[in-house]
Amino acid sequence: MSLDNLVENVQATNSELKDADYDLDREACTELAMLVTALDPEEPDELVRRAIHALFDSYVQTGKLDFNLRSEYDATYDEYLAGMSYDEMAGGGQTFPQDEDEGRRYQY
Rank of each mutant, 00 (worst) to 15 (best):
L3A: 07
D4Q: 08
N5Y: 09
L6M: 11
L6F: 13
L6G: 05
V7Q: 13
V7C: 10
Q11D: 14
A12L: 11
T13D: 06
N14F: 13
S15R: 15
E16S: 14
K18I: 08
K18H: 07
K18L: 14
D19E: 13
D19A: 15
D19L: 11
A20P: 02
A20N: 11
D21M: 07
Y22P: 02
Y22S: 02
D23W: 03
D23N: 12
D23F: 07
D23S: 14
L24Q: 05
D25H: 03
D25L: 02
D25R: 01
R26A: 14
R26Q: 15
E27N: 12
A28L: 12
A28R: 15
C29A: 09
C29F: 03
T30Y: 09
E31S: 10
E31T: 10
E31H: 14
L32K: 02
L32W: 01
M34R: 12
V36E: 01
V36G: 01
V36A: 07
L39T: 09
L39E: 07
D40E: 13
D40Y: 00
D40C: 07
D40T: 10
D40A: 10
P41L: 06
P41V: 09
E42C: 09
E42D: 14
P44L: 04
P44C: 08
D45G: 11
D45P: 05
E46M: 05
E46I: 05
L47W: 00
L47N: 01
V48M: 08
V48A: 06
V48I: 15
R49D: 00
R49W: 03
R50K: 08
A51L: 04
I52P: 00
I52M: 01
H53D: 05
L55I: 04
L55N: 04
L55F: 10
F56P: 00
F56E: 02
S58Y: 07
V60M: 04
V60A: 02
Q61E: 13
Q61I: 01
T62G: 03
T62E: 06
G63P: 05
G63V: 03
K64C: 00
K64V: 01
K64D: 02
L65K: 00
L65Y: 01
D66P: 01
N68W: 07
N68R: 06
L69A: 06
R70V: 08
R70G: 05
S71H: 09
E72D: 08
E72P: 01
E72G: 06
A75R: 06
T76Y: 01
Y77I: 00
Y77W: 03
D78W: 02
D78I: 01
E79L: 04
E79A: 02
E79R: 02
Y80H: 06
L81K: 09
L81Q: 07
A82S: 11
A82V: 01
A82H: 10
A82K: 08
G83S: 09
S85I: 03
S85T: 15
Y86R: 13
D87R: 09
D87E: 15
D87V: 05
E88P: 03
E88W: 06
M89R: 14
A90V: 08
A90R: 15
A90S: 11
G91W: 03
G91A: 06
G91H: 04
G93R: 04
Q94F: 08
Q94D: 11
Q94T: 13
T95A: 14
Q98S: 12
D101T: 15
D101G: 07
G103A: 11
G103E: 08
R104V: 03
R104N: 15
R105S: 09
Y106V: 05
Q107I: 10
Y108A: 12
Y108M: 13
